[in-house]
Amino acid sequence: MKAVLLSLWQYRHFIWSSIRAEFAGRFARSKLGALWMILNPLAQATIFAVVLSEVLVTKIANIDNKAAYAIYLMAGMAAWGLFAEIINRSTTVFIDYSNTLKKISFPRLCLPLIVGGSALINHLLLLAAIAVVFLFFGHLPTLAWLVLPLGMILIVLFAFGLGIILGLLNVFSRDVGQVMGIVLQLWFWFTPVVYLIDSMPPRFAAILKLNPMMPLVRIYQNALLYGTLPNISSLLIPTLVSSGLFVFSFWIFRRASADLVDAL
């Protein structure tokens, strides 16, 4: 693993330049250019907030704020969106860049890092847009927001580790990518993003607690809505799972990388 990390460090400029090139290509021939990186998430966050707080008037018990559910939903969507984007793009990244892999020699693990870096930048911009919407509703930041980087790290580790494994499997069996589209949809509804876990029947609540994404999403919801810090004991298992999966993905990648290009 040390050798892999050293090779990635040597190609750090290649990774960063690839991330910048990806964003530059996304907004090529656009008058507003990179400004769309802020306007798009800001519009999305505003629509959620206005519809849920002003039209549907959905409320959360014990919180006297008509925008509470909108804040809850946007917090959960932000956390889930980071996870889902890394998973979706990592699953197909080796196939998408198959021509590059065959023509240029570089550490193949750079590709998931480029995907992860791009997703993280999108996520930070979304959080900035959400913060603007929160201010509009008078929901001011608290010190609990400082815990969000911990949530980002755990989600990225978990998604990166799982994404690399799925990306490798998808090279050798393209059915993996199709199946994951369905699995992610089911996984989303087994994660308390749209609904409150307290509203679920006890028999389903016990199953939801087995979901490693639930405590990670709760970090965002607790910090952004309730202004509370996560319970350390509740993060023990997600931290072990995320870290273990991240390390395991490096090991399995080294075992499979020799046959990767041939399979493409």
Score class of each variant (00 low, 15 high):
Gln44Asp: 06
Tyr11Glu: 13
Thr228Asp: 08
Leu5Ala: 11
Leu126Phe: 12
Ile114Leu: 05
Ile164Met: 09
Val194Pro: 06
Lys103Trp: 12
Gln185Asn: 07
Asn211Gly: 04
Phe14Ser: 01
Gln178Lys: 03
Leu157Glu: 10
Tyr195Ala: 09
Gly76Gln: 03
Ser18Thr: 00
Trp187Phe: 13
Leu126Cys: 10
Leu157Ile: 13
Ser173Trp: 14
Ser18Ile: 00
Thr142Cys: 07
Arg255Gly: 06
Asp175Arg: 03
Glu85Pro: 00
Val261Trp: 10
Phe94Ser: 01
Ala84Cys: 15
Gln185Leu: 11
Ala78Ile: 07
Gly33Met: 01
Val55Pro: 04
Phe188Lys: 02
Val132Asp: 03
Gly117Tyr: 07
Ala84Ser: 15
Thr100Pro: 02
Gly76Glu: 07
Phe160Arg: 00
Ile19Val: 14
Leu157Asn: 09
Leu8Gly: 07
Leu148Met: 15
Ala206Gly: 05
Val147Cys: 04
Pro238Ala: 10
Arg12Leu: 12
Phe27Gly: 05
Pro149Gln: 14
Ile60Ala: 06
Leu208Met: 15
Ser17Tyr: 13
Leu225Met: 10
Leu168His: 13
Leu109Cys: 10
Ile182Val: 13
Phe106Thr: 03
Ala78Trp: 05
Leu208Arg: 04
Asn65Ser: 11
Phe23Asn: 01
Ser53Lys: 00
Ala24Val: 14
Met37Ala: 14
Gly81Asp: 13
Asn211Lys: 01
Ala119Trp: 04
Asp64Val: 07
Gly138Met: 03
Ala79Thr: 03
Leu82Asn: 00
Leu120Lys: 02
Asp259Asn: 11
Val183Ser: 10
Val132Asn: 02
Leu73Met: 08
Ala67Ser: 09
Asn62Ser: 14
Val50Met: 08
Ile38Arg: 02
Ala70Phe: 09
Asn222Tyr: 14
Lys2Leu: 09
Arg255Leu: 15
Val194Lys: 11
Val261Cys: 09
Leu216Arg: 00
Gly33Thr: 02
Gln44Phe: 11
Ile114Glu: 05
Ser173Ala: 15
Phe190Leu: 15
Ala49Met: 14
Phe188Arg: 02
Tyr195His: 07
Glu22Asp: 14
Trp145Phe: 15
Ser30Trp: 05
Gly138Cys: 02
Leu32Asn: 02
Gly25Gln: 07
Arg218Ser: 15
Asp96Pro: 03
Pro141Phe: 11
Ile60Asp: 06
Gly244Thr: 02
Ile60Pro: 00
Leu245Gly: 07
Ser118Met: 05
Leu148His: 06
Leu39Met: 09
Ala256Cys: 12
His13Ser: 14
Gly117His: 07
Asn222Pro: 01
Ile130Ala: 15
Gly33Phe: 03
Ile207Arg: 05
Trp189Phe: 15
Leu186Tyr: 08
Asn40Tyr: 12
Val171Tyr: 01
Ala258Leu: 11
Arg89Tyr: 09
Phe106Gly: 04
Ala223Leu: 01
Thr92Cys: 08
Ala159Thr: 06
Gly33Lys: 01
Val176Gly: 06
Pro215Glu: 13
Thr91Ile: 12
Ile63Pro: 01
Gly244Tyr: 04
Ala68Met: 03
Ile47Thr: 08
Leu5Arg: 06
Leu166Ala: 12
Ala263Gly: 08
Ser7Lys: 12
Leu120His: 03
Leu6His: 12
Asn62Leu: 13
Ala263Trp: 10
Pro202Gln: 12
Leu56Glu: 04
Val261Arg: 03
Ser233Gly: 07
Lys209Met: 13
Ala223Arg: 00
Phe23Gly: 01
